[in-house]
Amino acid sequence: MADLTQEEWAEALAKDENAVILDVRTEEETDEGIIPNAIKIDIYKGQEFIDQVEALDKSKTFYVYCRSGGRSAQACAIMNQLGFTETHNLLGGFNDWTGEVTN
C-alpha cells in the first residue's frame, strides 16, 4: 500500500490505464458526491465488504478513498492481505479532494 497525497494520487491516477477507483464510505457519505467512475463498497459492511472486494480483478491498480483517509488505509491493508498488490490510499480522503465530483 502506498499513501499518496491528493496531488500524487490524481497524477498517478491520470497516467494509469489499469486504474480502479474504490470509494469505501457509507451510502450516506457517498450521497454527498463521489470521485467520477468510483466503485462504491462500504467498508463497514464487514464480510460483505470482503466478499465484494474479493470479486475484483487483483491485477488492477486500486486507488482507494474514504472521508479522511483512515478507513481507506484499512481497506488497502485488507486488500493486501487478500492478495492485491497495487493499492493506493488517498491521504486526507474526500474531505480534502479538490478534483472533479459527481453524484
Score class of each variant (00 low, 15 high):
A38R: 10
D16T: 04
S72N: 04
Q52E: 11
G69D: 13
A77N: 15
E7L: 05
W9Y: 11
T85H: 10
I34K: 10
T26Q: 15
D16L: 00
T30Q: 14
F49H: 00
L90K: 12
D57V: 09
Q74R: 14
E48R: 04
P36Q: 08
A38Q: 03
E100W: 01
W97L: 14
M79W: 02
T30D: 08
K45A: 07
R67E: 15
L4V: 01
G69W: 13
V53Y: 03
A77D: 15
Y65K: 07
N80G: 04
M79D: 07
N103E: 13
F94T: 14
Q74A: 12
F94H: 04
T87W: 05
H88V: 03
I35A: 05
C76Y: 06
V53A: 01
I78G: 04
A19W: 07
V64S: 01
E28P: 01
C76G: 09
E11M: 13
N80A: 07
E7R: 13
F62I: 01
V20P: 00
D42A: 02
N89M: 03
Y44W: 08
N95G: 08
Q81C: 09
E7Q: 15
W97V: 12
D31G: 10
E32A: 14
T98F: 11
E17L: 03
F62W: 04
C76N: 08
K40P: 02
T87V: 14
K60M: 09
T30K: 13
V24D: 01
E8Q: 10
L82D: 00
V53L: 03
E8F: 08
E27C: 11
G83W: 01
Y65I: 07
T98K: 15
I41K: 02
A12E: 13
A2Q: 14
T26H: 12
I21Y: 12
G70E: 09
A19I: 09
L56E: 00
A2I: 08
Y63P: 04
S72H: 02
L4H: 07
E28S: 15
D16K: 10
A75Y: 00
N89P: 11
D16A: 03
K60H: 00
V101C: 06
K60L: 07
N95R: 13
T98E: 13
